[in-house]
């Protein structure tokens, strides 16, 4: 799988090698949403490979409504000062200037995220022009490859953030996997002509689709995100072929104490590393304790869903 990601083929690719390379170094790890320096420290001590700095966790964004924007730089700076692991931050879809601010702040990765209110209903950010790498969400292969064509160096499922319901993230990774299988068989049976036809259908670049078919996986690292609430959820997403896991609201939402949040964080890290070890998963489930209450995805109205933002 990731073995096929080797490929700094020349100078022109160096910038992308460095961007995608950081994501490769995060594989097998958990990236946690944090809103304060104290939460960032809990995440770091639990073994998170990176933190996502944001003002409100997705479940609270959902509850409070209003326009969700890039976080206050002051808060991001405090989190950067508190930890030595990479710090990521979210920008609104299409908000070039928020991305420039985050780049100037020196965060390690920008998430152009549907969890925030989109700033542009036509275009995502042209990411290849930035020095800072980007991660973007997807629901299917076409969407993933459109983001990669724009310069994204890491992909994640969109899932349905802030719900604690894993069903949408499962749907998105299964869709990506099924479409990669289709691309492989198209390449095997019909060569370039079949790849071109499928690229038209999926709305993506034919060259990237061919590369994906050859690799048998996305050409960049692909994490799970959106609804991961328990250690078993994290392990399920690893089982389905994700390279690692973002946990948004699942660590700190409804946690009784910081100690409880720390236990949850440790348990999800453990489950992600040992996703195919039932004994470790039992221990992780016990350590995790009570999960966030959550909202069933099936009960959400279409306008309440975040995954539909972006295209």
């Amino acid at each position: 799988m990731a073995a096929n990601l080797n490929g700094a083929n020349g100078r022109g690719d160096d910038a992308f090698t460095v961007k995608a390379g950081l994501a490769q170094m995060l594989k097998g790890g958990v990236i946690m949403d944090v809103t304060t320096a104290a939460e960032a420290r809990i995440a770091e001590e639990a073994g998170a490979v990176a933190v996502m700095a944001l003002e409100r966790i997705p479940s609270d964004i959902r509850k409070m409504g209003g326009v969700a924007r890039m976080s206050n730089p002051e808060m991001i700076k405090e989190i950067q000062a508190a930890v030595t692991i990479p710090v990521m931050a979210k920008a609104r879809i299409g908000h070039i200037v928020e991305c420039q601010i985050l780049e100037a702040l020196g965060v390690d990765y920008v998430d152009e995220s549907e969890v925030l209110t989109p700033a542009d209903d036509q275009f995502h950010v042209q990411k290849s022009g930035f020095t800072i790498p980007f991660v973007c969400g997807c629901r299917n292969l076409g969407e993933a490859l459109r983001r990669i064509a724009e310069g994204a160096a890491m992909i994640r499922t969109k899932g349905e953030a802030g719900t604690g319901d894993i069903v949408e993230a499962v749907k998105h990774i299964r869709t990506v996997n099924a479409e990669i299988a289709r691309a492989k068989s198209a390449l095997d049976q019909g060569g370039d002509l079949a790849i071109s036809a499928l690229a038209r259908e999926l709305g993506c670049d034919a060259g990237l689709l061919r590369r994906t078919a050859e690799l048998g996986r996305l050409p960049v690292v692909n994490f799970a995100a959106g609804g991961v609430a328990t250690p078993a959820d994290a392990a399920l997403m690893m089982h389905l072929g994700c390279d690692g896991v973002f946990v948004g609201s699942g660590i700190f939402k409804d946690a009784e104490t910081p100690e409880h949040a720390a236990k949850r964080a440790r348990a999800i890290v453990k489950a992600t590393h040992n996703w195919n070890q039932p004994t470790a998963l039992i221990e992780a489930a016990i350590e995790h304790g009570v999960a966030m209450k959550g909202i069933s995805n099936a009960g959400l109205k279409p306008e309440e869903k975040m995954a539909g933002r972006g295209w």
Partner: peptide, 13 residues
């Protein structure tokens, strides 16, 4: 060592 990180890349090379 496959705890986390660039494992597959090393094995490939």
């Amino acid at each position: 060592l496959a705890l986390q990180g660039g494992v597959g890349e090393h094995i490939a090379l």
